[in-house]
Design a protein around this nucleic acid. Structure first.
Length: 560
RNA sequence: GUGCCUGUAGCUCAGUUGGAUAGAGCAACAGCCUUCUAAGCUGUGGGUCACUGGUUCGACUCCAGUCAGGCACGCCA
């Protein structure tokens, strides 16, 4: 529908002899008396054409040739808004169209033939997922769903590192707990992993091996055992939320030699060196980010800053594999690269972008979704989340308390850049305060109506002729149809901005319109044509809710 | 100290390249169930859009500064 309006505006502009300098925007006015769709195109052109915006709008409107079956009338209002009013038959037909398209309704083909990669979670296997991680996990998953709905072929990737200092620390933490379990007295350092899960892993080792590993000083067994346990637990937690990755990318592979005898890490250094961005000093290899404008300010003076890629002990810093990893996203042929990560990783990303940029990669393909932290409060008191300290609020515990649907919903119902305050006490309450119930209730209600209607009127709702949509007439019916019609726009809007919460906002509107319709319009017991037309509308509403729920990854319950 | 994010109703938050009378849920108050699920619907009250200045026909939106909170600032990952 939007396309039709934009097309017609473009045609009219051409006739008037004006060029649309900016994208033509169609909005839904916030007051229904201003029509069903609105454009401010006349006002944006006022300055260039040196004309009164109202006059421009009038001229455009006089050129419009709309099908009266679709657009009833067009007005000019306010400072120069062009307001469109949809005709009844358009709304009626849209209901039939939704039912015909079924699960496909809301999908778009803008991404067909394009490959997208969404990297999310990417937590190293050092402990259970925290509540804070859950936000990025759900956000990333919803973004992947939305992109799929846009037609992209989407790869969901988890990038992880099972080497390095943190893993050694983890392994030794497990070893010490194991010795403790064997009855040895140990001293457990403060900077080791404190969580109870370490003891659980040690317990498992003890159950399998008894005290045969007491004298073991090599950490590799402990490391591998702990890693396998923790990874399994992470995957289990994610699965509870319906999250499954297609690909697990091990950072270690970037250290391994590929054809030509060099690792991908080394290749990055070679390429940067060719471009003149490498400097070797103090025994380390530096990326000359200072040449690219990186600086810090100290005592009012600006100091250019370079970045270490290989430490003086010969080990790469994490930035080097990060760059190499991103290059693989290009070489693997992804057209759209989405990275989802928490605010704590905000500093590494400009370095990666700088490197990709100087190496000639098109960084406009990369979209970054940075989610702010989740602060959890218990009894009004803030709890800091840290895996190492062991007082972490685990994502698993949260799912136990509030269920998978509410967990997913809570994490994406707010804009990602807000600091989400997750009140555990409130979330535990399984009451009607819970906003996810409002949506799901609408779905359950529809299912209930259809059940009763099929029983009492002995009919098959799915088999009702779509011709009955022509009976739809009441304001509440047409308002609901109008809202349903907007679904495809809502999906692409949410997908383009990587903001699943816009989907929730939209679905809330649908539920609201449905509840109003329900209040005013009875279905069962009405005359047959009216009943059938309303059943069609209810079915279309159910379809939109289902399609939307699927993108959010929440259930569509038949009863509540 | 520097960078990024945030500040909108009592609370949690929406607010579409700057546009029409700043919205929703919860909480409060008042109504609506002999009829398809009242986890719903209707209505009322509630605002210095953190503060100050600037840009312009027009600013919650853009710019500058101030205040408050979060995060990050390592040859840790």
């Amino acid at each position: 529908m939007k396309e039709i309006l934009i097309e017609e505006i473009k045609k009219a502009l051409a006739e008037v002899g004006a060029e649309p300098t900016r994208e033509i925007l169609i909005e839904k006015p916030n007051d229904e008396k201003f029509g069903d769709a609105s454009s401010n195109v006349a006002m944006t052109l006022a300055k260039e054409l040196k004309k009164n915006p109202r006059q421009i709008a009038q001229e455009l409107v006089s050129k419009f040739k709309f099908n009266p079956e679709q657009i009833e009338r067009v007005d000019v209002a306010g400072a120069g808004f062009i307001n469109f009013y949809f005709s009844k038959s358009l709304l009626q037909q849209s209901v039939a169209q939704i039912l015909a398209q079924g699960e496909q309704f809301g999908k778009s083909n803008v991404g067909v033939g394009k490959k997208a990669i969404v990297e999310y979670v990417s937590a190293n296997p050092t402990g259970p997922l925290t509540v804070g991680r859950g936000r990025g996990a759900v956000l990333g998953d919803c973004i992947a769903n939305l992109l799929e709905a846009q037609g992209y072929s989407v790869t969901r990737e988890y990038y992880f590192n099972n080497a390095g200092r943190q893993m050694r620390l983890l392994a030794d933490s497990v070893r010490l707990r194991y010795l403790e379990r064997c009855g040895k007295s140990i001293s457990f350092p403060d900077d080791y992993y404190q969580g109870d899960y370490i003891k659980d892993i040690a317990e498992k080792i003890f159950a399998q091996k008894g005290n045969t590993l007491e004298g073991e000083t090599d950490l590799s067994f402990f490391k591998e055992f702990a890693e396998a346990e923790i990874f399994a637990s992470i995957k289990r937690t994610l699965l509870r939320l319906g999250i499954q990755h297609d690909s697990f990318f091990n950072e270690k592979s970037l250290y391994e030699k590929v054809q030509g005898g060099k690792s991908r890490n080394e290749q990055v250094i070679d390429m940067l060196e060719q471009k003149g961005f490498i400097e070797r000093k103090d025994g380390a290899v530096w990326f000359k980010t200072s040449l690219l404008g990186k600086k810090k300010v100290e005592d009012g003076k600006e100091i250019p800053v370079d970045t270490v890629l290989v430490k003086s002990n010969g080990e790469p810093s994490y930035r080097l594999p990060d760059i190499a990893y991103h290059i693989t996203k290009y070489t693997r042929g992804f057209d759209l690269i989405v990275n989802v990560f928490g605010a704590d990783h905000i500093d590494e990303y400009p370095d990666v972008m700088r490197a990709l940029d100087v190496l000639g990669y098109d960084t406009s393909r990369i979209k970054v979704a940075i989610n702010q932290f989740v602060t959890t409060t218990i009894n009004g008191e803030q709890v800091k989340m840290s895996t190492r300290k062991g007082n972490a609020d685990t994502l698993d515990a949260l799912i136990d308390e509030v269920g998978a649907d509410a967990t997913r919903f809570f994490f994406v119902m707010r804009a990602k850049e807000t600091h989400l305050n997750f009140d555990l006490e409130l979330a535990k309450k399984q009451s009607s305060d819970n906003p996810v119930f409002y949506l799901q209730y609408a779905h359950a209600r529809i299912c209930g109506i259809i059940r009763v209607a099929e029983e009492k009127a002995t009919l098959n709702a799915e088999a009702i002729s779509p011709d009955f949509v022509k009976v739809l007439n009441a304001k509440e019916e047409l308002d609901l149809a109008k809202e349903l019609m907007r679904f495809p726009d809502a999906v692409s809007y949410a997908a383009n901005s990587l903001e699943p919460q816009k989907m929730i906002m939209y679905l809330n509107g649908v539920a609201e319109r449905f509840h109003k319709f329900y209040q005013e319009c009875r279905i069962v017991g009405e005359e047959e044509p009216v009943m059938k037309s309303r059943l069609l509308l209810a079915l279309a509403t159910r379809q939109v809710l289902r399609n939307g729920f699927k993108m959010l990854g929440i259930c569509a319950p038949e009863r509540m």
